[in-house]
Write a protein that binds this DNA or RNA. Structure first.
Lengths: 345, 345
DNA sequence: TTGTAAGCGTTATCAT
DNA sequence: ATGATAACGCTTACAA
């Protein structure tokens, strides 16, 4: 086991000083051609690589991004990570990922842990619990310490910083409009409780779309789910007693559950009821019938977030002006809204 | 914007030396009660937290684990990450995640990047391309430098280190046995190309199960897929022309595609053909019909890997003895193999 | 052209 | 009981 080679070692071996080695490796003009050659040859031969930690300490920069996410077993966040990784790696940054598991305390802990020198800035999607508590002091804290923060998807208005979002309301409206255009009038929505920012926005989009088309909002067709774990039962129950011709679900899990509930009721999708989901993921693509959906371009959101953060870290942007990047959504039509085979009776 | 508080700052403010502050905060008995109180009070008041980078440099330990994965938009790896995070965080470790995207070069780059002081050790699942090339010098390299490595799931025999796997062959055999027990005799397998270690093992399990039950292996019922992106077409094509009473797929994507192919052929699952998948994920759970599967306990694998790595980092294990932890699989029976409604004709 | 020294933030050793 | 110093690995004025 050979320990990592250091400048000191090289200096000792070549009988020069540490600073000479350092300068030679960085092609400083102060160093004579021959010594430079010698040092570089030696370094290459023994595969010298500078120690990141020492560099970080010296430069007070880690070239590391702290990423704090509510969960990861979820296509959307996984794609966000991919996007971030892609950009970060290209620019020579590492990504430290921490999961809050939607817990406020863990989110705070993670940020405190990373804020003590481990990262130069944060990309964060706030935990459900944090949104519920509306306590964002930990975010303000790191910002006050001069660490830039970029919020992604689940953002909070109270914190002033760069943000990357989609227009959730517009995306939802687009989905619902598609249902309306397909002739549906009795459209249920399966959404989250209101304190989940994106859930609320999507609910608003649903409401807007109905109103715009002069369809009376029927509160009885709105199901708000708190915990995804018991969602199937709630959705079964909800759909069993209601007659609808379409369902808009704010995520693909709810959509899949809705289809299941409808089928067990003896209905067929899309022949009897159209179903559309939000946030295009593996499930929507592979489901039978494949699910129409509003895609969220997670990778693009992540890439954009990384880009915004790195720009700020490298001071190429106006210190005072924060931007909110809005990533476009688009409707992906698949089988679950393909109304061709048989007309509604 | 207030910069982070340092020992130096505190020392200056309280008019004592840096070492006094350091000792006071660490409850050194050398320090007088009053000064200790004073220092601690001040530190608490201004929320002093030691700088991780400085500590890392000093201790030559980062308390950070490098995690290199082939991909992440994949339930299995996502759960592995969850498991690792859980254990790592509990023990005060951070996790730096890098994605190889199944590329050899990126895997090497990532490891080199992290090996320069950023992490104390690695947890890695090797890239597909790396398995194909059989080039593992980057792994041996970091091991030679004294950084422990734990391989997860996609392991390589050539490297001696701790490993966490499941018994893929046994799991596959269990799945196939279940099909046989359900009365199937003409069982197709949809698997990966052989250089993917786990794919090959699962294929072996399939073969073993057939032989054990005296069922002749029909090479024509074996489909090996290279690239998941075109898998649907290949699977459609494959199943169209073959008459089978069951399909064993080595991952849930293939299984979903198989069901789709069968349905488009006019068959029903499970009435006409049973389908079973491997690696329990969201898709298997939510699919219609829900897919029977061999669960892989990704979170448990991750947790175990983190535990093994940390034990080695903290030297509580015998330096020379490496272990291979085998996580148990179990069969999860769902609708896709529930053969009740109608007997095979 | 090369080397010395200070400093990044800590902690451990060794004075005082 | 407190402080000065060196060290972790590196860079960069500043000296020589």
């Amino acid at each position: 086991m050979k320990p990592k080679l250091t400048l000191k070692q090289i200096a000792f071996e070549l009988d020069v000083s540490v600073s000479t080695v350092s300068k030679a490796l960085r092609d400083s003009p102060e160093i004579g051609e021959d010594t430079r050659q010698k040092v570089k040859a030696f370094a290459k031969l023994y595969n010298y690589k500078p120690n990141n930690i020492a560099l970080s300490l010296k430069n007070r920069k880690t070239r590391t991004i702290g990423l704090v996410l509510p969960e990861i077993v979820h296509d959307f966040f996984a794609t966000v990570i991919s996007g971030i990784e892609e950009v970060a790696n290209k620019k020579g940054y590492n990504v430290i990922i921490c999961l809050s598991n939607n817990s406020f305390d863990r989110e705070v802990m993670n940020m405190e842990m990373l804020a003590n020198g481990s990262t130069d800035g944060f990309i964060l999607s706030v935990a459900k619990e944090t949104q519920q508590k509306r306590d964002y002091h930990h975010l303000q804290e790191v910002i006050n310490q001069g660490m830039p923060v970029v919020l992604v998807d689940r953002v909070v208005d109270e914190i002033i910083c760069d943000k990357v979002i989609i227009d959730d309301a517009e995306g939802a409206a687009k989905a619902v409009q598609h249902l309306i255009d397909s002739g549906c009038r009795s459209i249920a929505i399966i959404t989250t409780v209101d304190y989940v920012s994106v859930g609320k926005l999507r609910t608003n989009g649903y409401l807007n779309a109905l109103r715009k088309n002069n369809i009376t909002v029927n509160e009885d067709l709105i199901l708000k789910i708190e915990d995804i774990d018991q969602s199937q039962e709630q959705i079964d129950e909800f759909l069993k007693s209601r007659n609808v011709d379409a369902v808009f679900a704010v995520n693909e899990q709810f959509a899949a559950s809705a289809v299941k509930a409808l089928v067990s009721k003896g209905l067929t999708v899309p022949e009897d009821v159209l179903v559309i989901s939000f946030s295009d993921g593996e499930l929507s693509r592979r489901f039978m019938p494949s699910l129409s959906t509003v895609n969220q371009h997670g990778a693009e959101m992540g890439a954009r977030a990384a880009q915004l953060l790195i720009e700020r870290l490298e001071r190429v942007v106006d210190e005072e002006r924060y931007q909110t990047a809005i990533i476009n959504t688009s409707l992906i039509e698949r089988e679950s809204t393909l109304k061709t085979k048989k007309p509604v009776v």
